[in-house]
């Protein structure tokens, strides 16, 4: 009776996941050993993986690494202190948090469209501000040079991710009992020392988790790049390369292999970390 009830409650969801996530997923792993498209299919072993490593444009690796490196560091460097300040109660705190969240709910495609008019070479806000502040003399076409466009696309991504990270850090900070601060003060620690000696060590696991989360979302960057610079090789991310490989070159086996490689590399650290935590948690 009890078992019937449980099966009845969880079966629909589990079945759905089996059919539409796990079946295609294992099918993809199987496919990655074949040279295939919609009509033909031929077993070639790990050939796809070898070809992918050889044929993927080296630039895309570099670009993605740049996005990841830049975004993760910037996100954490900004989100941590922001959360630390928001922890204090002050007038209008709710409104401030509500406004700070807006970038996170902006759809990435819209995000790209909006930033285009900030980065525009002749009529963008960025040039205008920099020129008014006399930092540059002539307007620059930001999205034309490689390094600056990588950086600026990174900024768009960071802009979107920061609110989420801030909220996560904030919720963790709020869990630290007040007594801890008081104990620190009684022991004669200054505000800065409390932060370094007490708070940061307690936040270590959250920091770790957010860095891993940041890596995953930056490795899979697609929408912002697609909207701002299209398929240009200078800014192409691995996921855009993958998309092109599958849909314009129709190399489906290789595309699948690349997607699997990217997934493994980007999520493995997170999985290891999580599995340790799931072991500890009781569910």
């Amino acid at each position: 009776m009890k078992n019937k009830f449980i099966v009845f409650m969880i079966l629909p969801f589990i079945t759905l996941l089996m059919v539409f996530i796990y079946y295609p997923f294992f099918k993809s792993i199987y496919n990655s050993f074949y040279n295939f498209n919609f009509n033909t299919r031929e077993f070639i072993g790990i050939e796809n993986y070898i070809r992918v490593i050889k044929e993927v444009h080296r630039e895309t690796f570099f670009n993605t690494a740049m996005y990841v490196f830049f975004s993760v560091i910037t996100e954490i460097v900004i989100a941590c202190p922001l959360a630390y300040i928001l922890k204090n109660k002050f007038k209008g705190r709710g409104l401030v948090i509500a406004l700070l969240i807006l970038p996170w709910i902006t759809p990435p495609a819209v995000n790209g469209v909006i930033w285009r008019w900030i980065y525009d070479g002749s009529y963008g806000l960025l040039n205008d501000i920099l020129m008014k502040l006399s930092i540059i003399d002539n307007s620059k076409v930001w999205l034309a040079s490689r390094l600056s466009s990588l950086l600026l696309i990174g900024v768009v991504h960071v802009w979107k991710v920061i609110p989420f990270m801030t909220l996560v850090f904030l919720s963790q900070l709020q869990k630290i009992p007040k007594e801890l601060y008081e104990a620190g003060r009684v022991d004669g620690l200054k505000e800065n020392q409390i932060l370094v000696k007490l708070i940061i060590p307690m936040m270590k696991s959250t920091l770790c988790l957010m860095a891993l989360q940041g890596i995953i979302s930056a490795v899979q960057i697609f929408d912002e790049v697609y909207v701002l610079t299209g398929f240009s090789l200078d800014t192409r991310s691995l996921m855009i390369e993958d998309y092109l490989m599958i849909f314009s070159n129709l190399k489906m086996g290789q595309g699948t292999a690349l997607a699997l490689i990217v997934m493994t590399v980007s999520t493995l650290p997170m999985l290891l970390y999580r599995s340790i935590r799931i072991e500890k948690e009781k569910i």
């Binding site: 969801f13 589990i14 996941l17 996530i21 079946y23 295609p24 997923f25 099918k27 993809s28 496919n31 995953i216 899979q220 996921m239 993958d242 998309y243 599958i246 489906m252 595309g255 699948t256 997607a259 699997l260 990217v262 997934m263 999520t267 997170m270 999985l271 999580r274 799931i278």
Partner: peptide, 15 residues
């Protein structure tokens, strides 16, 4: 169920 969150769409797209 939780692992689904770690599977990117790209890997299951073709099937």
């Amino acid at each position: 169920i939780i692992l689904v969150l770690a599977i990117p769409f790209y890997t299951i797209m073709i099937p």
